[in-house]
Write a protein that binds this DNA or RNA. Structure first.
Lengths: 336, 336
DNA sequence: TTGTATGCGTTATCAG
DNA sequence: CTGATAACGCATACAA
């Protein structure tokens, strides 16, 4: 329904020069251009309200200065914070960002991968669901720039920006133990997809326990869908020997736990101590203030964007090691 | 750095037909096409791993099946929720979404408007900063599809999806009064840009007070930058006649208030009652649970997307009234 | 039923 | 210093 359509040709006509000259002008190649010509072109551009058509340019130059971001599940704070960082960096480089939410569904993920590829985005950052390995592998072979965030896919040597997840759990468990807690639980969202962060967090949890001479109690380890948390916690707390502390594997898990606690009038940390992985907005002013393990989300997003942008611009990074691990930090507050 | 570049021409060669035939096949126009031809084309596509180039198609068809969303400030929950709804709807219609954060800066907003336009997105949804009226006006004249969300710009008759802001405040004030509070404050983020929601919320607040025979106390009305909240609240509470209830004008304001309250050991609702406009994630399990005024964010995002998509597809909506106001709801919990 | 020719708006090459 | 002309990959009348 748009009415206008002023092109480079119109500008050319209006300013009595050829299209090529206008193009040169537009691309700042006016080294050998007459002052008067420049002025005429500029005037025509103003008068006609000319705007270059980036689609045409993209077709010609085979670059859209746009990247795609496919996030497994946008409901996590982690995702939104990393995305924000990616957008910031891209903005600095004059790149645009199309973000897609795969909703933890490999099918959706695949659709988006192909869509973005077809749209000729210059590269993609993926928070992988764990599926679509072949597709991704093929794209890698075709030299299509890809960077992973949050999750590793063992079979692929694609640059990946992740947290040191084992350390995250270790920090938490260590802190619990220092504060005198021995019966420690870990609760995380469903593990069906067998994703690295969840696995690594549980592994780190177990190791830390063992290193402190505490036996792992499998009853204290819960991986549940969000709507199962209620019964899961209930179950655990009804054990003859219930846990005294819970490590929430991510923000969504933490929220479910807090809901349960609120509903059942449990008190923190008297009845149950709590540490959550991920920075939730309300940690610092919740009652009580929540001890958390924080991820350097901005740094991670920045790294991912830079890796991708470098790849796109042909500045290959020395990829001896394609895994970039970031350090979590414990922020001590009042819930443990 | 990509290696591949298989085009429609390659497929045509490989399957011994012309480009047009392949094109027809791709666009499902195989009514009059020989079975055998179809098979050959399909095979060639598979073998070569052909992927249509959407950029080329967009250039030809003058449609990118992409829309832009420019949000004034992405830090508000309201924004993120509305964006999510917009993306959902667009996804249904097979449209893509590029979202840009203007950061409450009209300059940035302008840059994005022009960028998106140049990128030939089929339309834009804007949470306007209040600047760039001329630019927007010009685009409207050029029949470029635009929809506003959250904020109205009085001079422009562009379809706008907004909350009934006066009613939001009215609901809150009414509730305070029913619960026996008379000294009621409203705190909102800076009003320098003179934006409609903030103005309307304050107006609604004043009206509700007056309708209940309560005098408006200008000392109880604060519009501050986020980092000024501390001193602002302090100031108010040191009045000889301090307020007993605060209405937080949006989520960010609410958070600042809660931070202050936490730091100063004020208790809710004993010392001060609280209602917040916007649904914050933690309202239902904060201690105490927070009474809020909720906006139908999903509905609003959906409406905005549909208005835009309709416009893009030429299905003009009957625009007798171009303002779509949505109803807020009070969710009663324990902070008042 | 399929092929040919042309154009979408830009950039790049190479003469002039 | 400037201007033809040919791509880029696809879609679409119009022919055949």
């Amino acid at each position: 329904m748009k009415t206008k359509a002023v092109t480079i040709a119109d500008v050319a006509k209006h300013s009595q020069v050829s299209k090529s000259t206008v193009s040169q002008y537009l691309n700042q190649r006016y080294e050998y251009m007459g002052e008067e010509t420049k002025a005429r072109i500029e005037e025509a551009i103003q008068q006609l309200g000319y705007r270059p058509n980036i689609v045409a340019r993209s077709l010609k130059q085979k670059s859209t200065t746009t990247i795609g971001v496919i996030v497994a599940n946008i409901l996590h704070v982690f995702s939104t914070q990393v995305i924000r960082a990616i957008e910031d960096i891209c903005h600095e480089y004059d790149f645009h960002t199309i973000v897609c939410n795969a909703d933890d569904d490999p099918k959706k993920e695949k659709k988006y991968i192909e869509m973005l590829h077809a749209k000729q985005v210059d590269g993609i950052i993926v928070f992988p669901t764990g599926g679509n390995i072949e597709t991704l592998q093929q794209m890698q072979k075709d030299n299509y720039p890809i960077v992973f965030v949050d999750r590793l896919i063992p079979d692929l040597t694609i640059p990946s920006v992740v947290l040191d997840n084992e350390k995250a759990s270790t920090l938490a468990v260590q802190h619990f133990i220092e504060r005198g807690y021995q019966k420690i639980s870990i609760m995380t969202t469903s593990i069906i997809h067998n994703l690295t962060p969840r696995r690594e967090r549980i592994r780190g949890y177990k190791q830390a326990l063992q290193e402190n001479g505490i036996n792992v109690n499998e009853n204290y380890i819960k991986s549940l869908e969000l709507d199962q948390f209620d019964v899961g916690i209930e179950e655990m707390l009804s054990l003859q020997d219930p846990p005294e502390a819970i490590l929430a594997g991510n923000d969504l898990a933490l929220i479910e736990i807090l809901k349960f606690i609120k509903k059942n009038n449990v008190s923190i940390p008297e009845n149950i101590a709590l540490i959550g992985i991920d920075d939730v907005s309300f940690a610092s002013f919740y009652n009580p203030r929540l001890t958390t393990i924080s991820q350097p989300t901005f740094e991670m997003g920045k790294k991912a964007a830079e890796l991708l942008l470098n790849k796109i611009q042909g500045k290959e990074n020395e990829d001896d090691n394609h895994i970039y691990r970031f350090e979590p930090t414990l922020i001590e507050r009042d819930s443990c």
